[in-house]
Amino acid sequence: METFESLVRAEFAPKNVYLNTASNGLLPARTVTALDRAVRMRAEGTPTGPLYEDVEAVRASFARLAGVPVERVATGASVAEYGGLIAASLPAGAEVLTAEADFASLVNPFHMRGDLKVRAVPLERLAESVRPDTALVAVSAAQSADGRIADLAAVRAAAEAHGARTYVDASQSAGWLPLEAGAYDFVAAVGFKWLLGPHGAAFCVVPEDFGGLTPLLAGWVAGEFPWDSCYGPVEDLAHSARRFDISPSLFSHAGLRASLELIEELGVSAIEAHDLGLADRFRAGLASLGHEPVPAPGSAIVSVPGLGHRQPELSAAGIETSNRAGNLRAAFHLYNTTADVERLLDVLSS
């Protein structure tokens, strides 16, 4: 029987200490094989019908990870696309509550409307800041800059109490933090970070009644029978969230199908335990060096103020991290080991 460690060893062989999953996840070996197969199909003129099957397999896999019926999952290319649809559904003057310095792809579509009241508050005050006139609360489950985890249960309760909708960006959490997407109105996530897929695929979970969204980006794939919707207006939109699909990047979905299969085989709970164990080990090591990370209990992302300038030095030493807002950000995922943590601490101590 394969173990967590044996599965990971079979899929990953990084040439350096890679601690930058918050930017891009590493591709498993099976994903590289799937991408190669898809590219060869196009190069050789092989019928590409199986690549469209990958899209539906990816949708179903993400639905299982998100804990929702597959009919609630749309797939496109970016979180910003779905943020734009949600923003377009709000009436002029509606208030959107966000966390200060949240990721641009989440908050920017609401600012671009120009006629919405976008209010930003500290993350820890988000739930208490919901007001009777708040129409939508939009927040990342885990903050990109520093890994802080939103109190989503409190946000949901406050939103329900005031009749507001909720929109969660799970791009920095889906794949290592269990996701209960059905508890929120809208949940979006990209596939190229913790879900270990190629760039070019994203998801959006919508309510069963579609939450007032208009499929403004609908093309032929948004039809109930897509191959019958190639010409002229789409007469019969999909009766599911597929009406919000954007024409899929077939290569991306071919690779992501393999990546999500691995995530499901390993199990998100096991990945979470692994990732948090390494992150907490790093936090403990930082304390011994006299550094204090941004408080982010329960997060696989560790952000250290004042050390961002050391990112180039670490990269030269074969350790990939990132510099975010002057902080050194290390993101621990399933392919990392305790040796990676010790190597990072060793270089930081020098």
Results as ranks from 00 to 15, higher is better:
D54T: 13
A57D: 15
L85Y: 14
I86Y: 11
E71H: 08
L90F: 10
V79S: 04
A77Q: 14
T98S: 02
L65V: 09
G93T: 07
L85V: 09
G93H: 05
Y82N: 06
T98G: 07
R64P: 02
G83V: 04
L116N: 01
V55I: 14
F103S: 07
I86N: 06
F110E: 01
P109C: 08
E100M: 10
V96D: 05
G114Q: 11
T98M: 07
A92P: 15
A104E: 15
H111Q: 08
G114R: 11
E100N: 10
R64A: 14
D54Y: 09
A63Q: 04
S61G: 13
A66E: 01
A60D: 15
G67H: 12
K117Q: 15
D102E: 11
E71W: 02
V96S: 05
M112C: 04
V107W: 04
M112P: 00
P69M: 05
D102H: 06
A63V: 04
A88L: 03
V58I: 11
F110Y: 11
A87E: 02
R72C: 03
V79F: 00
V70G: 05
V73C: 08
A66K: 00
L106I: 08
T75H: 10
V70E: 09
A104H: 08
M112D: 08
A80E: 12
L116D: 03
A77S: 14
A57C: 15
G84T: 14
V70N: 05
E56P: 15
S61N: 06
A92I: 02
V68M: 04
G84V: 01
S78K: 12
R113S: 05
L106Q: 02
L97K: 02
R113H: 03
A77T: 12
A63N: 04
G67Y: 14
H111E: 11
E95L: 02
A99S: 12
L106R: 01
P69V: 02
A87M: 01
E100T: 13
L97M: 10
V68N: 05
A94D: 04
S105T: 13
N108K: 10
A80Y: 08
V96E: 04
